[in-house]
Design a protein around this nucleic acid. Structure first.
Length: 234
DNA sequence: AACCAGGACGTGA
DNA sequence: TCACGTCATGGT
């Protein structure tokens, strides 16, 4: 069909599910503690330093955990006025752990986030490098990419477990492709057919679309059983 | 009642 | 380098 199957896949996902509005920010004003703002179609986010920080926190908290659990933690922190570096520092460690408890791994994550706090403040509003992020305990490749792409609007494609499953199922990568390989495969394919001014929003939507689609068809084995994309991406 | 969730790290081979 | 155990809560 298309010579660029990766771009074809994007177009099909976009047409099927539409804009995803990632990265969602919590909506504390609504009483519902699960309320999120997806700012669909609006790519001028994050708007404030506080929103940048919230996305970073979410990136830590969502590691190997459902995002619905992360939302609870973020609401807890907001209630404690601790969705800012200073706000968290004003908390004692036990209160902080309790607040993020719904997201699991609270002993590790609390330590990691506290370490990140210092780094975040030294940034003073500037954009961190990928290498600097990877140097921080608790930030691996995907978390670094998520922070760069969604908190700082950098042109970095986010690869997660879903991405590998979907791409492997469609035979677009090999089974044991490593993170950097998959990322390079995606970026090279997209760079060749997407104008630079649109790449960031496409990267943001693409990753979100993969997650959305994979939740339906790639969560339980056999992966991709009921996935209709096999019919199209060839 | 197992299995999965928008992973990362430490360890030993 | 790589496979494997660990971290922990919550939903299905």
């Amino acid at each position: 069909m298309s010579k660029n199957k990766i771009f074809t896949l994007y177009k099909i996902l976009y047409k099927t599910y539409g804009q995803q509005g990632w990265w969602p920010l919590i909506n504390y004003d609504k009483k519902d503690v699960n309320s999120l703002d997806y700012h669909i179609g609006n790519y001028s986010f994050p708007k404030t330093e506080s929103e940048v920080f919230e996305i970073c926190l979410g990136a830590f908290l969502t590691q190997n955990v459902a995002f619905t659990s992360v939302v609870k933690s973020l609401h807890n922190l907001k209630t404690l006025n601790a969705l800012t570096p200073q706000g968290i520092k004003n908390l004692d460690q036990e209160s902080f752990k309790l607040a993020i408890k719904p997201s699991g791994y609270f002993n590790q994550k609390s330590k990691y986030i506290l370490g990140f706090l210092h780094f975040f403040e030294t940034l003073n509003g500037t954009t961190p490098t990928r290498e600097a992020l990877l140097g921080i305990k608790g930030i691996g490749e995907e978390t670094a990419e998520s922070i760069l792409l969604y908190a700082y609007n950098q042109e970095e494609f986010v690869v997660d477990a879903y991405t590998k499953r979907v791409l492997f199922s469609l035979k677009l990568i090999s089974e044991k492709s490593k993170y950097e390989e998959v990322k390079a495969t995606m970026q090279e394919a997209l760079e060749s057919c997407i104008p630079k001014v649109q790449r960031i929003k496409v990267y943001q939507e693409y990753h979100a679309l993969i997650v959305h689609h994979a939740k339906n068809h790639y969560s339980r084995k056999p992966y991709g059983k009921e996935c209709m994309l096999h019919l199209f991406v060839y």
